[in-house]
């Protein structure tokens, strides 16, 4: 990749849009997953008894639905990201490629 191409792409507003949109979505979803997971781990580390709380009259503890919730939410975050990335971000990337076609 030569300097001219780098220069052209970097100054393309669509490139700036792509990078900032993607980074912001990635960071938001990433923080969500990190906070969710570390909250779980920290509860296990410092206050295990909390997870031993039973649901209603049964013996099932809240630890089970919480684990299930983390699994499901992790999957949903990947879905959200890919819907955005394979639609909007992919289109932006295509447009950027078209703009610099003469240099590739």
């Amino acid at each position: 990749m030569n300097d001219e191409l780098v220069e052209r792409i970097e100054s393309n507003p669509k490139y700036k849009e792509l990078v900032s949109k993607r980074n912001s979505l990635g960071i938001k979803l990433g923080i969500f997953v990190l906070v969710m997971f570390y909250a779980y781990i920290l509860v296990i580390a410092f206050n295990k008894e909390l997870l031993a709380t039973k649901i209603g009259d049964g013996i099932t503890t809240i630890a089970f639905p919480i684990a299930l919730g983390i699994l499901v939410l992790s999957f949903i975050t990947t879905l959200i990201y890919v819907r955005k990335a394979n639609g909007e971000f992919e289109d932006l990337t295509k447009e950027i490629k078209k703009d610099v076609k003469d240099l590739i």
């Binding site: 979803l29 997953v33 997971f37 983390i70 699994l71 992790s74």
Partner: peptide
């Protein structure tokens, strides 16, 4: 649970 949460991180 811990084995799974690495995946979203890899993706993002």
């Amino acid at each position: 649970v811990s084995f799974l949460v690495g995946w979203p991180v890899i993706l993002f």
